[in-house]
Amino acid sequence: MHGMINRAIEDFVRDAYGEGAWLAVAAATGSDSRGFRLLHDYPDDLTRALLAEAGAPMGKTGPELAEDLGAWLAAQSGLRRLLRFAGSDFSEFVLSLVELPGRLRMVIPGLDLPPVQVELEGEDYRIRIASADPLWLHAVAGMLQAMADDYGVLAVLALDRDGLRLSVPLSAYTEGRPFSISDPAVGAA
């Protein structure tokens, strides 16, 4: 797994649960507590272990933690801004999920997300990810929930055997958060 992903887990644990929680996760997984290298490849099993260990103290499973991670990522101002570029409204954003792996690859060559498929199911969306690992789908579900808040829509997500079912009972639920493409990038040093 790309170092960027492990780094995201590390930052999430530090930010959400504190430095002590991160040190415990690092010790339990045999990771360098100073943190992961961004441009380095790590074994996939390590990433699964990180999520499992990070969730353990709260009685959460790895997939549940992946969901929290997805929501946390989408709430980071820099990433949230980049995500908003994908669509001018939530429906466009959901349909553009098929472009998400391409966008990621464009920004970070080597960071490969499995292919994403979005279909309309009546009024709802059906989202599938072509990976045997359910962690991806859980992370995307968390991200979608956070982005629904960002766009100001009420979204209901349900994971089942066929992937993720997303319905939007209220498309103008709140004002959402303001976004303008001409604002400066967040995170620029």
Partner: peptide
């Protein structure tokens, strides 16, 4: 839009 996205992603990556 893709060019804007990319230039902002680039700035964020450089920051990181």
């Amino acid at each position: 839009m893709e060019l804007l996205f990319l230039s902002q992603a680039n700035a964020a990556m450089m920051g990181e």
